[in-house]
Simulated assay, not measured.
Amino acid sequence: MNRPACILWDWDNTLVDGWAAIQHGLNVTFREFGMPEWDRETVLARVRGSLRDTFPGMFGARWERARDVFYGAVRSCHLDVLSPMAGAAAAIEAAAALGPQGVISNKQGPLLRAEAAHLGWAVHFAALVGAGDAAADKPDAAPFAMALAACGIAPGPHVWYVGDTALDMQAARAAGCRAVLLGDAAHDGGVANAGPDVHFADGHALAAALASLARSPAPLET
């Protein structure tokens, strides 16, 4: 396993569990629009793209009203229900010894940055790029270019993008980065469906691997 020079992270279900707020926001919006509500399993299975990429198809011409309802509901509770994923803090600490870090998420940028600050994690990241911050959202390469510019690193296999879904693996490869899956992707068809370059069972396993890589010699500049 090659030592990374930079690690970029997905946010929800990779570093944090914020699904309760997302589910609440969706269901408040669905109620206003007379649509069936989603349970947690449905939210986990269906939420992938950013709001600006998915809400027009879900809500049609009134998608901007749906956006406002959703964000209002999420802002009312997201910090209260936010919790780190198992091993996430240790993985972030271990990654700090290897190079700069950033986050690329399809969560709205201000919400993402508020959550990172709430957890005391913002200091670890050279970039916190959320939906709406770049010209296009993940899986487009635009947010990766923004994050890597802030990190001072060019794209390549020396950059890991760690996420929990097949979309994350697709996005990593589109940006020229190594696709690293965290968890079993049971909500997204499993590990084989995600097709990662590297797979770790959980944050604790990833933290241990990163700590081991940090003890190995860094590659020589050529």
Rank of each mutant, 00 (worst) to 15 (best):
L111R: 01
V123T: 15
A134T: 02
G130I: 01
L82S: 02
N106M: 13
H158C: 11
A141T: 07
F144M: 02
F125S: 11
A127G: 05
H24F: 13
G49R: 10
I153M: 03
Q108V: 12
F59W: 09
L51P: 03
A174K: 13
M85Q: 11
L210M: 08
G130K: 00
S105A: 07
A145K: 07
D39L: 02
W19Q: 08
H158K: 12
D53Q: 10
L26A: 15
A131Y: 00
L26D: 13
F200D: 04
W63Q: 01
E37S: 08
G102Q: 09
G87C: 09
T54E: 15
A166T: 09
E32R: 09
G163K: 10
D12G: 07
G203S: 03
A218K: 11
D53M: 12
V159L: 05
G57M: 00
A90G: 14
D202H: 14
W19F: 14
N2D: 12
G25M: 04
G60F: 02
A89E: 15
L213F: 03
T222S: 15
L119Q: 03
G109E: 14
L210W: 04
D133T: 02
V198M: 12
L112H: 00
A194F: 01
R62F: 08
H158V: 08
F125T: 05
M35L: 15
V198A: 15
H187C: 10
D140L: 08
M85I: 11
P217I: 09
